[in-house]
Write a protein that binds this DNA or RNA. Structure first.
Lengths: 148, 148
DNA sequence: TCAAAGCTCTATACTTGCTATAGAGTCTAG
DNA sequence: CTAGACTCTATAGCAAGTATAGAGCTTTGA
């Protein structure tokens, strides 16, 4: 099949396929007499794997590792599970952070309601970083060293 | 003050300051006789504003708009609040999405436990996109048109 | 049969929000 | 006086693609 068909079947853009090829995630395919890329079912599978991983927030570098595991004759569970568990932990902290962020933005909006109507308190408060619980949280989170 | 001092006071890298200047978010500063950038308290405030916004996930384009509002003599609440409310809504859907994603990854891990121990079921399942609730969710979310 | 529309090719540049590097000049402390 | 710290500009790089130009190939309908 040609690249456009593959793209449709894996719900992905044509340029993205070429991009993955250049990155080494997809093998360089056969070419037709007119120099068009020719793909088979294996490619659909592999591309679906990549897209599936991407949708789950796994980055290309890790996908490459997973693909290598997939390619190896006897694929071990351990490294795969470790990767996934790492992602889950990541997600947990991302969720917590977004919740805190949301809270902070809501507080920011609230703070304005208490202000005069024609002078936006939100802007005022955005000038004062030191009073922001969220920024404090972030500062504590990466606790410490700042250099240039 | 020189750029390094400003960087420390706004908890930001020197290169980032120059980057913001080039982007037009910070005014082009005075220069010393040796061509060093010279900053004042106003710049600390402005840079803190930018950093504060960035930490809250507001992008540079929107920060520019907010800065313009801040610069205008009588800053209106409406556009600022609208921007912020938009961000909060965004965050809500991001949080929901991450939660679903987490669930999906956990299910993926679980699915393997039920498999044989030396053949990783996670990889198998990553090949089969069509069975994935999370991918289905995403497909429904952007409901429809796919072109190239 | 032929032309237009649609697909494919390569190569390059752009996106966001920075970060890193090279190679130069300047400033400060011992 | 010199070593180290700071600053300057300009350019290139990161993720993960997206967009564009300009060319060639193929399919479809009149």
């Amino acid at each position: 099949m040609k690249i456009g068909v593959l793209a449709k079947r894996a719900d992905c853009k044509v340029v993205t396929i070429r991009f993955y090829e250049k990155k080494g995630l997809l093998p360089t395919p056969e070419r037709s007499s007119s120099n068009y890329r020719e793909y088979g079912e294996k490619d659909v599978e592999r591309l679906n794997f990549i897209r599936h991983c991407r949708r789950h927030g796994i980055n290309l570098q890790e996908i490459e590792i997973l693909l290598n595991l997939l390619d190896s004759p006897r694929n071990a569970c351990d490294p795969v599970h470790k990767t996934l568990r790492g992602h889950i932990e990541n997600l947990e902290s991302q969720i917590e952070d977004l919740k805190a962020l949301k809270k902070s933005l809501e507080a920011l909006l609230d703070s304005c309601e208490k202000h005069s109507p024609d002078r936006c308190g939100v802007l005022e408060n955005l000038l004062k970083m030191d009073e922001c619980a969220y920024c404090g949280r972030r500062a504590r989170a990466d606790d410490g060293s700042r250099e240039d």
